[in-house]
Design a protein around this nucleic acid. Structure first.
Lengths: 193, 193, 193, 193
DNA sequence: TATGAATGAGTCTTCATTCAT
DNA sequence: AATGAATGAAGACTCATTCAT
């Protein structure tokens, strides 16, 4: 019982995820999700109260997925290696057209006020900043990086990434522009040989 | 007549501007603008076809205003002075709550696809990047700044600003976080004395 | 403009009145009124926000009508004549099946809390009590009636009428039962010859 | 099983009774009763077809309770004593806010047409009228009351009570207004000393 | 008997847009 | 050029009722 129910709930979420990736958040209606899921008009309200509630759950699951992954490096990877991998991954996420919730996420958070206490975006950014700062510290200790304030630098990198992401979707900046920006990040950090 | 007509058009734009600044773009309806302007339900269509058309014009006028201003420095201002003033201004724009079209602009551009050829946002960013790059070159020549690639650095600064702007509205980052980020920009650029 | 608009408004009210008389208040939907009036789904909201708003206006107009009328007696009518006419009129209203808003009125006032300050029902009952008390005083002065407290008696008569009215609609009491009750009122008041 | 089943049925009725007392009849949904009882969405239909069916049963049980009670007088109570007690009880029922099915009962009977053959309300009123008439006859025989037609007077008293009851809920008449009306009843009946 | 997920009809309400004046 | 009444499509949501288990 609970199991079947859970399956349906997940079906709705998966379907909705696709729709949000296609249409963003604002334009998506309950009807869109109803028509795409195999559920009735009234049935969806057994699971979710609104598109916002659905999207929040989609984001939560997304967040769970993200935290996982990223174990593609060998033990003896250098800090530079890790940084490059991180940026490569970020670039991929930045530029991918399909299956990208970025626009929906922006629309949702813009519409629902960024100051919410349970803001996943902010929590995640803090986590990333910490990880990145640690990486930079390691790199500095190794002599790979030159950096006076790892924490500030980590944040700056994340702001650049965030700036690139929103720019991709609002200004249509090109893939090569992203490349140059990411390259510049690396260059300002890595000790020239 | 043409003049009266023009006045009415401008009245609509000014009124709409306020509304967009308050409510963003997505939530604003024709009715909102009609009720606030002194125009009839049918009459507004003589001037504009949609909220999007109105907002585009608002943005266009906004762009005109921006290009002006910024002459508050004396002739003998140093590059550092100019940079600091620029960042101070940007910070002010970043954080102001009232009369801020940022959210509306994001919502509009996210909804209407960032890839439009006549994208004002992108055009303006390019212009800013050029100005900033020139400033940095001057600073480098003066020995005020240390920078290997003024162009890339200029872009990076703008991406950080863009990242900060969207973060303010989606993550509710604090004023002090903005300060730190801006300070870090200056520090990475200015030659330590 | 205002005139045509006013006509439409009145058309809605007249149509709605019929429907309320047929179906009571609770079961009537906006759709019922829309379908019966010549107005569109959205159009009705230009005039009224809800069935309650419409019904309130219907009642208000009804109240206006009631205050009028009742000039069917000659100058030299006795107090008994007036009382008998009053009771005859009330009986007619009590028992009529068509064009009777009593059920709707009960449903509305039961659902919307009887304690509203602008309660038309209460205001009207007070007015009636006053008129009736005056009539009884006249009758007493004439030697037609015997009554120690005209005011209390007037109220009692009105409560009996109210009791009869609700009983007609909730217990289906018969016309002859109403007759007996009204007759008893007269008998307890009129001095036996 | 039959017993367990009966318990569940009664549980539904008791729960529903509370809800009807709170919300009246019209606004109560099956869902309300289901949520408050410990029964499943489908399960309730094994016992009752509709809120109306439930309410009818609630009323039937209520009727049973009422018939009981009222033995609080000693053997040698006078007719006046009995009348006063009766009116006191009725007043209490009239004015109590909690646990009062009056509004629900009105809503139900108004919506379901008062003419039903099995109308409990009418049956009960007849019973009360008979009892009251007998009491008055006793009082007249005792010389306590003056009354020419005990039956009509009994009915009139009941109509006044009914008029007061509906007025409490539709006009919000005050406790003191009820007092005056009841006092007037007694005064018109009791032989002045 | 009992469950509770699922259904879909029905209602309310808003909005961009049209059109007679 | 201008008005504002009117339209009807579209979306949100609720609820009684059914049905597979």
């Amino acid at each position: 019982m609970g199991e079947k129910s859970e399956q349906k709930r997940q079906l709705i979420l998966d379907t909705a995820r696709q729709i949000f990736a296609q249409k963003g958040f604002a334009k998506v209606t309950m009807k869109d999700i109803i028509d795409a899921s195999q559920i009735s008009r009234g049935g969806i309200y057994l699971y979710f109260d609104s598109t916002a509630a659905i999207f929040e759950e989609v984001l939560r699951q997304e967040d769970g997925k993200e935290t996982a992954g990223a174990e593609e490096l060998t033990e003896d990877a250098t800090a530079v290696d890790v940084l490059l991998l991180f940026l490569k991954e970020e670039k991929k996420k930045l530029l991918k057209k399909k299956d990208n919730l970025a626009v929906a996420s922006y629309e949702y958070h813009l519409a629902h006020g960024g100051a919410a206490t349970d803001n996943l975006l902010r929590r995640r950014m803090k986590q990333q900043a910490q990880n990145l700062a640690e990486l930079i510290e390691v790199g500095v200790a190794n002599g790979e990086f030159y950096c006076e304030s790892p924490e500030d630098t980590a944040n700056q990198i994340l702001y650049v990434l965030e700036g690139l992401r929103i720019s991709v979707h609002t200004m249509g900046i090109s893939s090569s522009a992203v490349d140059r920006a990411l390259l510049h990040i690396v260059q300002s950090l890595v000790v020239e040989v």
